[in-house]
Amino acid sequence: MGDALVRIAAVGKSFGTTRVLDGVDLDVNRGEVVTIIGPSGSGKTTLLRCVNALETYDEGSVRIDGVEVGFRDDRRRPRRDRDLSRIRAATGMVFQLFYLFPHLTAAENVMLGLRRVRRMTKQAARERALHWLDRVGLADRAGNLPSQLSGGQQQRVGIARAVAMDPKVLLLDEITSALDPELVGEVLAVVRSLADEGMTMLVVTHEMQFAREVSDRVAFMDAGRIVVQGDPETVLRSPRSERLRAFMSRVSHVSSPGVG
């Protein structure tokens, strides 16, 4: 694995006395889709948020394209806000609860980062935003405020907002968990098409079927550690770990695909 785009090595983090990440190693190669599954509280969302510095980590290292995310030097001094902004611009994140900007239209949501971070002209940003809204099937919704869109549509705008920035890696944090079951499909279809085009993704999800279809690799987390990782067939079809088996039997009893 010489071509790791995201290299997570021995990452540890504690909230007070709780050990949320306990020495996590995980690589994401260029063009690869890696899915993290596991029970709630296992640390998977925290791990994802360490990759774009929404969370800090106490030990270990997270590197994107060789650049340490959380610290600015070997003395492990935390990065300044301006540095972090630059590093975050290299990643795209889609949130469970969308977090669209409610005062901006769909197009303006996508344009904000293009204008202020990528410093594009208004015209160029608009064209790019409309291109991506079209890609997620919302060309006709460009002028709508988030409050005028369904959950699935909002989440697709969320994806367009992240992807339009041309990130090196896309981070998806349980992006279908807050959706009504009938809206999950349209969002996953967009993610699938991005995966087909070779977008590098690190995905936290409860959608086992989706994880199986789209992932190149699945990592099962429990109690702040990656217990098993490997290709989806091996990990999900024949769970060797006792804890993974227990987890799999719990989620397979859940009939609704939208449960998070």
Binding site: S85, R88, M93, F101, L112, R116, M165
Partner: peptide
């Protein structure tokens, strides 16, 4: 303003001042 707004603004790489100016204060 919901804390997620600050997170989303961070995630697209806006600086502190930009986050306040374009995302937090308007809301």
């Amino acid at each position: 303003v919901h804390h997620g707004q600050m997170e989303a603004a961070r995630a697209i790489g806006l600086t502190f001042r930009q986050r306040l100016l374009w995302v937090i204060f308007p809301q």
